[in-house]
């Protein structure tokens, strides 16, 4: 499979605008910021959740509870993949998730398996009043009945293509890119 140059689907400004709108949508859905918890999924979801949190805090003037979820230990393919993946840290606010609206933030929604794992982990942490799913990119291709509540952008792409969200903390810049790999030639 030959990699060709990635195509930028959303540049920095476009991502920022999308995140700002998503932040407002979260507050609107929750009818305020009471009992709101933002949880980013490791790795890039954490950075996106942090940006959304800052945006809400600037707008509402209140501190928002936030944290990080690492779903590695809840993956459904642990028994089948080869060497063990590195486990990241889950950090939940000490206030907990019980009876709160938990917004799970991830970069790309694809099969839905990550979100299934995230929800299982959350249930082991407590009993949220409600879970909302917030993703920057919905690329379709679901394998489980899971749908997002708040979406930055929905894109329709082919199964062999890959969408990458880039964040400054990990990749040096903020963007959404289409890493178009050519279909394999038999």
């Amino acid at each position: 499979m030959a990699e060709v140059q990635p195509v930028t689907l959303m540049d920095e400004r476009a991502v920022e605008r999308a995140l700002a709108r998503m932040a407002r949508e979260i507050v609107e859905r929750n009818e305020g910021v009471d009992d709101l918890v933002l949880l980013g999924i490791q790795r890039r979801g954490v950075e996106l959740a942090d940006r959304i949190r800052k945006s809400i805090e600037a707008e509402e003037g209140e501190r928002i509870l936030s944290g990080a979820l690492d779903i590695t230990l809840y993956r459904d393919d642990l028994a089948t993949i080869g060497p063990r993946p590195v486990v990241g840290e889950s950090n939940l606010p000490i206030e907990g998730v019980d009876d709160r609206t938990v917004v799970v933030v991830d970069d790309v929604l694809f099969t839905g398996r990550t979100i299934r794992a995230a929800m299982n982990e959350l249930m082991d942490w407590g009993r949220p009043a409600r879970i909302l799913l917030c993703v920057l990119v919905d690329r379709g291709g679901r394998e489980l009945p899971i749908q997002p509540d708040i979406v930055g952008r929905a894109v329709a792409i082919l199964p062999h293509q890959r969408v990458d969200v880039r964040v400054p903390e990990v990749d040096g810049h903020l963007a959404v890119e289409l890493a178009a790999t050519r279909p394999e030639v038999a």
Partner: peptide, 20 residues
Amino acid sequence: LDTAEPFKEVSERRIKKVPV
């Protein structure tokens, strides 16, 4: 040692169990 770090947190949970 690095892998042990996130596992510390599991023992601090209310439900001290992961399905690994």
